[in-house]
Amino acid sequence: MTAEQLISFARGAPSLDIVDIDGLKAAAVRAFDADPAGITAYGNSLGYLPLREWIAAKHGVAVDQVLVTNGSLQADAFLFDRLVKPGDAVVVERPTYDRTLLNLQQQGAEVHAVTIQPDGIDTDELGKLLESGVRPTVAHIIPNYQNPAGVTLSLEKRQALLALAVEYGFTIFEDDPYADVRFRGEPLPSMLSLDEHDVVVHASSFTKTVCPGVRVGYLVGPAALIADIAKRATSLYISPGMVAQAIVHQFCVSGDIDRSVEKVCGALGERATLLAAALREHIPGVRFIEPDGGYFLWVELPTDVQVDKLAPAAAERGVAVVKGSDFLLDGGQHALRLAYSAVTPDRIDEGVRRLAEAVEAVRGQG
């Protein structure tokens, strides 16, 4: 199976046709023209100051509350390293990002997964868990177009989470790389913006709005916490990549970021709609919530379809998917995460046809 023949619903990355190559090339020239000394030298571990200032203005915070990282996954790792000790309780959504689960397990955390509903994490279930005596240090929440479930946390639940964090003394880790990739509806305020008690640390990334290759993510949180993490970053790599950050900064201040977001949202909105229609047409009994934004659609298959059998059968037919069980401590044997971001519209129906063939091939196999 050649790369040209493979249709991949596996990875949350944009296809090349929706990356603003020309805008990035022009931003790179401007970056070198504007600050050649600054971007070719070592920086400090907090990141490129002009970009930090832009991020601070976007979120309405002081610049000393911003630390730029090599992608948002490194922001996750820094925060977990700082706040989670072996044996500490941590709350995650069920399902949640597979690398988050892996990182927390490697950290030695006691992971408590709380069910996701169509409007986000079940705050009543979380409340009962807290009342039972569990005392998490962190609750990891992906509030907008959640990876992998695709759902968005309601305003009511954002407020409920903040109240629980204040009452029980844990940090909300608002992991929010998809917020700007919105197809319909109005944006909800971040928990960071609603926080009056310094219980929220916010992470985001330019991976989903500019391109993955820049590897520029960031943390926003209380200044003392950011300063502590910066010390750790200094000993790890001195500074993150100044060139990439300067290019992103120029891309942002020029307004190219807004045009890029608009293009990404238009393209992915079309792809999500086409994927949903193809699933309804070709796979009877499939269940899903059509997302209002983001990169992912979570699919519940009929119970006689085991994804451990389905994934290799799909690969044999030239379509790549990710098993739902990868995003859960237990369960997910009948679920898939489908990323529609990298599949161009002319390939989506064919990809689902191949997946449907694989479903029929493995039905009833225990």
Rank of each mutant, 00 (worst) to 15 (best):
E186K: 13
G241M: 06
I229G: 01
Q245S: 08
I247P: 00
G169R: 01
L194A: 09
A203T: 15
F251G: 04
D198F: 01
N147T: 12
V166P: 00
S239W: 01
D228M: 01
L236T: 13
I238Q: 13
G150P: 00
A244T: 07
I247Y: 00
P222F: 01
L162N: 09
T234A: 12
T209K: 06
A165Y: 03
A160I: 08
F173S: 08
I257D: 05
T234W: 13
R232C: 03
K263V: 15
S193P: 11
V181T: 05
S154K: 06
M191G: 05
V181D: 04
Y237K: 15
A223S: 12
S193T: 13
L236M: 15
Q146W: 03
L188Q: 15
V216Y: 00
Y168G: 07
R182Q: 14
V151S: 07
F173T: 01
L155A: 14
A203N: 11
S254F: 07
S190N: 13
D228A: 06
R232A: 10
E156M: 12
S239G: 10
I172G: 04
V214P: 01
S204M: 07
I257E: 12
V210N: 10
G213N: 02
E196W: 01
P189Q: 09
P187R: 11
L155E: 15
L162S: 09
V200C: 07
K157P: 04
A203I: 11
D180E: 14
N147G: 04
Y145K: 01
R158Q: 11
Q159I: 09
L188M: 08
S193Q: 15
R215N: 15
D256I: 02
A179G: 03
I257C: 02
I229C: 02
F206H: 14
V200P: 00
S239R: 07
F173V: 06
F206W: 14
F206E: 01
L194Y: 08
L236C: 12
K231A: 08
A246E: 03
N147L: 10
G241F: 06
Y237P: 08
Y168E: 09
L164D: 08
I247K: 00
L192P: 10
V201M: 10
Y168N: 13
Q159K: 14
R182A: 13
Y145R: 01
E196Q: 14
D180W: 04
Q250G: 07
T209P: 00
I247M: 14
P212D: 02
E167M: 07
Y145S: 12
K231R: 11
G213S: 08
Y145I: 05
V243M: 06
A179K: 11
Y218T: 12
K157C: 03
D256R: 15
E262K: 14
F173M: 12
I257T: 02
M191T: 10
L161F: 08
M191W: 03
D228L: 01
D258N: 12
Y145M: 05
P222A: 11
R232Q: 11
C211F: 06
P148T: 10
P189D: 10
N147M: 06
I172S: 02
Q159L: 13
R184L: 06
V199A: 12
I172F: 02
P212Y: 00
V200R: 09
Y145V: 10
Q159D: 13
R158E: 05
V166Q: 14
A230H: 10
R184I: 04
V201I: 15
S204P: 04
S190K: 11
S239E: 03
L162P: 00
P177W: 03
V220H: 05
V243Q: 08
D228S: 09
P148Q: 05
A233T: 07
C252Y: 02
